[in-house]
Design a protein around this nucleic acid. Structure first.
Lengths: 236, 236
DNA sequence: CAGGGGGGGTGAACGGTGTTAACGGAGGCT
DNA sequence: AGCCTCCGTTAACACCGTTCACCCCCCCTG
């Protein structure tokens, strides 16, 4: 009975299964091995330890969410930047909600003692995700649909950080233009994190309507009013 | 050498020490016992297990942050509701940043397999925290300083949830008035979560200026414009 | 004042974990 | 053929949460 070979894909796959079933604590080397019909030390031939396992898992999830968001964007009129942005954020939220454990792993409270290896797979797939939204904002800006700030309106240290961030990501923007990007990213992450973590469970039986409104308001805050009057977005 | 007795306070205290040093994973029954100069089974006389330990720890932290925010509010002109709100949110943010592990435990990704005991200490101290902010909003509302919504402007299911939430907390508000409260809570949590978790590290060397602006903008969004022109708040 | 009970500690043990070390077989290259 | 490298094995170490049986000492009761 020749078992199929022990590829990294299979290891990450069953790790993810464990993650989904029982959270990060449940992704346990020995159990991964067991499910692959193998003993624990065998995994150490392919993966350098539990941390490495988590690194690969995080990167895989980050890649997946980036794919999902990219697909949502590609599925839009290339000129309708407002809708593209809304679809991307909603795709993000939907992925997060249907993949709570994965979202928690990637965007939740960092696992203590776990340090993402510098230049490792997590940072490259993280950058990809950021650049997806970065591109969205650049389009919005070029189309004159982005509500920007005057650079003077920014605290000097904040201005410097924003300039630095833009340069690091290769975004051709000045600080007052990057600000809405970072703010949007921050608020989106916050909205989705809070919904996923359930820290508003006390208020809502069904959080979807609230979150949709929050994300719509966010998009409206980012966009320059006018031309495209956007009602509530219906995007399964 | 009569050791001092093994009180619940001392147990929670050293647990918190462990939490701070190494995150939730590090709060380990055996190590707590070791630090108290005692063996592990001894702790089981005072605490029913690791989950109980975490419950007590979470409740203690929630109580502390509520105290801190309450103190910040009490330290203000009782009539200046705008400032009271700003001070409370800033106190929350500051506590979160100087107590990251504790914040993560309370407001971060929920620990899998851990279920807060219904009606247990965590829910009572959680309610206390919520009511602190609830009271702030009631004051703001009574003073006519809260920007509210028309009930009609809310999705029906959202409206029902909000009414229910208000009733459950004993807030004398209609849905369009509760909405800004929940939204404010949500955004505050999001802003602070994202700063604490460091998921914006790629953008900022120093996140304080950005966060302050976010929290100020949030407060401004919540308040009815006019009467009290609020510049940037300086609140160490 | 004797004695019993119980609160609060002990060591030992069970089954789980991550990780390492020593070993061995199967397949390809020289 | 001989060897080497890949990839698996078993055994072991040190740690974890939790339970068990034990026991000591203090306090309350008769």
């Amino acid at each position: 009975m020749a078992r199929e070979p022990l590829t990294t894909e299979r290891i990450v796959g069953t790790s993810r299964g464990l993650l989904v079933e029982g959270g990060p604590e449940a992704v346990v080397v020995r159990e991964v091995a067991r499910r692959l019909g193998v003993t624990a030390p065998a995994l150490y031939r392919h993966v350098s330890g539990r941390d490495d396992l988590l690194t690969l898992l995080i990167a895989a999830c980050q890649d997946e969410v980036a794919d999902v968001c990219q697909a949502a964007v590609d599925d839009c009129d290339p000129q309708d930047h407002d809708t593209r942005l809304r679809r991307a954020t909603w795709a993000f939220r939907t992925w997060a909600l249907t993949n709570r454990p994965e979202f928690g792993l990637v965007y939740g409270t960092p696992i203590v003692g776990y340090e993402a290896p510098k230049g490792g797979p997590t940072v490259v797939s993280g950058r990809r995700f950021g650049q997806l939204f970065g591109a969205l904002f650049v389009d919005l800006l070029r189309a004159g649909r982005l509500r920007t700030l005057a650079d003077d309106d920014l605290d000097p240290s904040l201005r410097a950080d924003l300039q630095h961030a833009a340069d690091a990501m290769g975004l051709p923007m000045r600080p007052g233009e990057v600000y809405p990007f970072v703010m949007g990213f921050q608020r989106m992450l916050g909205i989705v994190s809070v919904e996923v973590s359930g820290h508003l469970r006390w208020a809502f039986a069904d959080s979807e309507a609230f979150t949709r409104r929050q994300l719509d308001d966010l998009a409206a805050d980012l966009e320059r009013p006018g031309s495209t009057p956007t009602g509530p977005t219906a995007t399964t």
